[in-house]
């Protein structure tokens, strides 16, 4: 199973990757991108099974990235991982077709709950 982690912070990409392992998701192929532009190119080329994306990023935000995926007809399961978690953001995420929003900071248990429906 291929997971694409999108965050402009290498530190956060590392945290997400480590938390995935701690949550017991083994044998994952993890791809990384630093913003929505890079992620869109990678998603179009590699068709990951799940995308975990930050919200605020340079060049192309997570929300713009999700909308671009929709326009390209890629219905890949998608979750936002973000330090802000307002009702407005949840509404925007839902309208864009995101499957969940995971707020930072998070535990392996939080990650497990968010992903269990999407990771085999």
């Amino acid at each position: 199973m291929k997971i694409l982690i999108v965050d402009d912070s290498r530190a956060m990409r590392r945290i997400i990757h480590r938390t995935l392992r701690q949550a017991g998701f083994a044998g994952l192929e993890v791809l990384e991108a630093a913003d929505g532009v890079e992620a869109l190119e990678l998603a179009l080329g590699t068709r990951p099974d799940l995308i975990l994306s930050d919200w605020h990023m340079p060049r192309m935000s997570g929300l713009e990235f999700k909308r671009a995926l929709n326009e390209a007809g890629l219905g890949i399961p998608f979750g936002f991982v973000t330090s802000e978690n307002t009702h407005e953001m949840r509404q925007l995420a839902e309208e864009a077709g995101a499957d969940f929003l995971l707020a930072k900071p998070f535990t392996p248990e939080d990650m497990s709950l968010a992903l269990e429906a999407f990771v085999a």
Partner: peptide, 13 residues
């Protein structure tokens, strides 16, 4: 990057 990410997450909390 690490210190910026920590203050960013703390701001969200």
């Amino acid at each position: 990057d690490a210190l910026k990410e920590l203050v960013n997450i703390a701001a969200g909390v």
